[in-house]
Design a protein around this nucleic acid. Structure first.
Lengths: 225, 225
DNA sequence: CCTGCGACTTGATCTAAATCAAGGCACGCT
DNA sequence: AGCGTGCCTTGATTTAGATCAAGTCGCAGG
């Protein structure tokens, strides 16, 4: 904990960038802190809203599970990310399962506190709206991927997205191939083969377990954008 | 046009339910009207924002096309629906293509007008936020479908959604099997075979080209929810 | 009534990707 | 160093669903 400040964490969230200091402090004072072990569930789909969550540290996944046990990961979160906006906004059930992939520290703002803040602060409302619009645009891209593109193109797309976004860098951490597979709605084996295809095409290289992007243009081509 | 009133149309949109009359009239005064022939494009993906669109009459589809010509329909619209909120909200390019499937009449509110309204009216802002949250929840369900469920389950799910929602009823209109196929990211042949499976299972019946839902519970079971 | 067109059905292949099944490699632990 | 244990790779096989190819049905127009 030491000199960590929840206010600072909240301030980093795009939603709260424009919000007055007092307001931030007010919210921060009501935030609830929890830590999680690797593979520990944070909350389950269908449960009453867990409120708005902000990641202090650690890596988290949001996922769905099919009746026959297949996992589909909708999104990864890292430090400075927030999640569960949907339930925090409408007060209905959590839309997905979330789980800590590493040790993680999360601050949670109760639904009632957050919605009250929205009622009061027009700027906050606009910021959340902006954030949500960006989210939907991103999701639409992912749907297009799932509906229209083969595995290799989805993978190329994934690598492109994460080339810039440091949010979930491909480097060492807990981003295993199985995780990528579950995120792209495919299998580890297919990821392996597709990585080989991209390597053959000259888009990427392997440096001792590391995926290195060699040619963005070739990658873009493979992504069929 | 006769005694049709744009204000009344806007008032029906969930976004504008709580907004003051003057404000509605102000927006209505600035709305641009256009009609479209069957199979006529309304706007293209990537073009500058066409603004917020409201359907007076007709049936419209929002869709993406892959490089190899496959079409994926994200959503259908009918009278009283609005679309292109994303571009209207952030002013960036239209996220998808839209096309009139039948003769259609659409009213468009310029992006600048709409965003100005949002700046001014907190209630409007909250209403749009609510609407968007609902949209994302729905989309997440569709993603889960695409990622985790086979065609028959997706189809069962589709039939369930449209059993209540009169918005796009399965009855006579332009909702052909090819359209359903493109909406569920599959082919007309697969839809045909899956319909047969659902019939066999006792979930639906055919009455001269019509799909009739016989047993909601069996359908729910097939949807693997 | 015939004719032709468009959408649906049905069957026969084909194919991308999932599943199944060994190995191999790297790292942590004793 | 020796040895698991996980994760990744690679190959063989299977399968859901796409594609290809005929028909069939219903309807509109002559």
């Amino acid at each position: 904990m030491s000199d960590f400040s929840v206010s600072t964490l909240l301030r980093q969230l795009p939603y709260f960038a424009q919000v007055a200091d007092d307001f931030i402090n007010h919210l921060a004072a009501q935030a609830v802190h929890r830590t999680f072990q690797p593979d520990e569930a944070i909350f389950w789909e269908g449960e009453p809203s867990a409120g708005l969550c902000a990641v202090e540290y650690g890596r988290i996944k949001a996922y769905k599970v099919s009746p026959d046990g297949h996992e589909y990961i909708l999104r990864f979160f890292g430090p400075g990310d927030s999640f569960n906006e949907l339930a925090a906004l409408d007060g209905a059930a959590n839309p997905v399962n979330t789980m800590a992939m590493t040790e993680a520290s999360v601050w949670m703002i109760h639904t009632a506190v957050f919605t009250a803040a929205l009622q009061e602060d027009h700027q906050l409302c606009l910021a959340v709206l902006r954030g949500l619009v960006g989210r939907v645009r991103h999701i639409v891209g992912r749907m297009e991927d799932l509906a229209l593109r083969p595995v290799t193109a989805r993978l190329a797309n994934f690598l492109l997205n994460h080339a810039e976004a440091a949010s979930a860098d491909l480097t060492h951490p807990a981003i295993t191939r199985t995780l990528i597979a579950n995120h792209l709605a495919t299998t580890p084996e297919s990821i392996s083969r597709s990585l080989r295809v991209l390597e053959q095409a000259g888009a990427i290289r392997f440096d001792r377990q590391q995926i290195l992007i060699v040619a963005l243009d070739i990658l873009r081509d493979q992504a069929k954008l």
